[in-house]
C-alpha cells in the first residue's frame, strides 16, 4: 500500500499533518531515523519555529545526509512545509547566518516591504490567494487547479531563489512577492500550511501524492 512518511524530529504540529494526509486515504508513518527515511515513498518535512533550532535537531538525529541522499541521489518525492520548505534552501539569515540543507538553491530572508504601510506586519499571518507562474499554467502541472485559491500563511521569513525556474506559485503581501510553492522535479516546498488550509490544502496534498 502507498504510504507517506512524516519526519518526526521534534519540530512541528505533526498530529494535524497526519490527519490531513489520512484524508487522502493513504497510510501515514512517522519516521525519525536514517533507514526509515531512505525507505520512504513520499517524505514530508514539517517544521515550525526557528531555523537554527530545526537544523540542530536534524543534525542531532543524523538526518542531514539522509535527506540529501533521499532527495538528490534517490530522487524520491519530498514535500517541505513552512519552515520545512525553508530548510531545503542553501542558507538562512534568521537570527544570524545558518546553513540549510542546500537541496534547492536559495536563501531564507526576512520579509521586507518598501511601502511603510502600518498594515504591513511581521509575522505575516493570513490567508492568501496563490498565483501560479504564467509559463507553468499551460504545462501539465499537478497543482494548477489551485490557482487563485487561498492558503494559510504564518511566517516572518521567505525564500529568495537562485533559480527563478524553481518558483511555481507566489502570493502577494503588500509589495512583496512571496514564494508560495517552490519545486525542483521531485522536491517540493510550500510556505503555507496545507494541513491548515481547509479543503484547498487537502487538495494540494492529494495532488502532491501523485508523485508516489
Amino acid at each position: 500500500m502507498k504510504s507517506v512518511s512524516i519526519l518526526d524530529y521534534g519540530c512541528g504540529n505533526i498530529l494535524s499533518l497526519k490527519r490531513a494526509v489520512m484524508e487522502s486515504g493513504l497510510d501515514v508513518k512517522f519516521c525519525n531515523d536514517e533507514k526509515n527515511l531512505l525507505e520512504s515513498n513520499f517524505l514530508i518535512l514539517p517544521g515550525v519555529g526557528a531555523f537554527e533550532n530545526a537544523m540542530n535537531l536534524l543534525k542531532q538525529s543524523n538526518l542531514i545526509d539522509a535527506l540529501k541522499e533521499y532527495s538528490l541521489i534517490k530522487k524520491k518525492p519530498i514535500l517541505g512545509i513552512c519552515l520545512g520548505m525553508q530548510l531545503l534552501l542553501t542558507k538562512s539569515y534568521e537570527m544570524g547566518e545558518n546553513q540549510g540543507l542546500d537541496i534547492i538553491k536559495g536563501a531564507n530572508i526576512l520579509i521586507k516591504s518598501n511601502l511603510k504601510s502600518p498594515k504591513f506586519k511581521i509575522p505575516h499571518i493570513d490567508w492568501e490567494e496563490i498565483y501560479f507562474c504564467k509559463n507553468l499554467l499551460s504545462k501539465d502541472l499537478i497543482f494548477k487547479d489551485l490557482d487563485r485559491k487561498s492558503f494559510y500563511f504564518v511566517h516572518s521569513y521567505m525564500a529568495s531563489l537562485e533559480n527563478p525556474e524553481n518558483l511555481v506559485a507566489y502570493s502577494q503581501y503588500h509589495d512583496v512577492k512571496i514564494p508560495a510553492i517552490i519545486q525542483s522535479n521531485n522536491i517540493i516546498g510550500c510556505q503555507f500550511h496545507p494541513e491548515k488550509s481547509g479543503t484547498n490544502g487537502l487538495k494540494l496534498l492529494e495532488s502532491a501524492f501523485k508523485l508516489i
Binding site: 498530529l15 494535524s16 490527519r19 490531513a20 484524508e23 494559510y152 504564518v154 500550511h193 494541513e195 491548515k196 488550509s197 481547509g198 479543503t199 490544502g201 487537502l202
Partner: peptide
Amino acid sequence: VKQASKNIFIP
C-alpha cells in the same frame, strides 16, 4: 483540541 484536529483543517 485533539478531537478537533481530527477533522478540522484550519489553524
